[in-house]
Design a protein around this nucleic acid. Structure first.
Lengths: 164, 164
DNA sequence: GAAGTAGACTTCCTTTGAGCAAGTGAACAG
DNA sequence: CTGTTCACTTGCTCAAAGGAAGTCTACTTC
């Protein structure tokens, strides 16, 4: 008797997706990963998540194929890092759809706190989750960015996103 | 010390959205509501959810403004029903994005179990979550349907979707 | 008008995981 | 060889999930 139901073998693709990403922390980790976070400490600081919860989530996300764990040599020491897989990066439209809905239907703490989806390939903001409504092409994690009007803890030690 | 964090006052619209819909049951209830379910009993049967959990979710979703509760006179008796609000219906792109991701990255129990997003306004399937990639117009709950290749418990007692 | 039934819940119970605090161990820096 | 940072793990408490069962109305049928 688990605490949560198992939807991994449902015929409905929505249910199967929710079996993987139907957890707010998973989506928030993906959000920060798409913003450039890679290390345990970066996720922990930016998400204000308890250590054990983050640890479990990262492990589960690696097991689910959303992230890939790697060791790399930084300037001072070696680090563990969690890199987006293709499956993880492909969740961008879900996060975009959530961002658009939140902008429309929830109230920000300050009236000037807003997020916009920018298709960097053409430079325009988009009001669609997965297709640039300026140039019409599909948006992927590689050519899309979020422009946020508030400041966030800086992401230090960002290496080029080689993803390999 | 709540069991779950509160993201309702975050500057990030994604976090605020997840405060409302960051629960798999909420999205699954919305899915079935978009498929035409309205009554407690319909949700319960189709979702295989425990009574108490469904009851709590429906109440929370009404409080969050995703559903609206109403009483209506059926053929045999009066019924309670839960109708989508505009905010609830506007989550269609999120569900579409999840469906597209699930079709691409998860394995169905049978190889022929698939879901497609159909823009009924023009009759074509779409590979975008919120814009018909055939005719280019934004898709809303009113002109979009899911074509599923498996059968589901029939939705009986469907009244016309007047939504008022 | 008594008994039965379906719908929409509520209550009770056990188990799990969230959130918090604190501890551990390896890798380096001084 | 002491201190610090990073990436965890362990222990605790308490709320919610999931299961089962009970309750309270309508309403139908005898």
């Amino acid at each position: 008797m688990p605490l949560r139901s198992d939807w991994s073998a449902r015929p409905c693709a929505i249910a199967r997706s929710l079996d993987v990403v139907g957890d707010p922390w998973v989506l928030l980790v993906l959000r920060d990963a798409l913003l450039g976070a890679r290390r345990f400490e970066q996720f922990r600081e930016r998400l204000e998540i308890a250590d054990n919860v983050l640890s479990r989530r990262l492990q589960a996300m690696v097991a689910a194929g959303l992230l890939r764990k790697a060791t790399y040599r930084g300037e001072q020491r070696t680090h563990q890092e969690y890199l987006l897989t293709e499956a993880g990066a492909d969740l961008l439209p879900v996060l975009n759809a959530l961002a658009l809905w939140g902008e429309k239907h929830t109230t920000p703490p300050r009236p000037d706190a807003h997020i916009a989806i920018v298709h960097t390939a053409c430079g325009e903001t988009s009001s669609s989750a997965d297709a640039c409504d300026n140039c019409g092409t599909p948006m992927t994690a590689g050519d899309t960015a979020w422009r946020r009007s508030w400041h966030t803890p800086e992401l230090t030690e960002l290496r080029p996103a080689d993803n390999n």
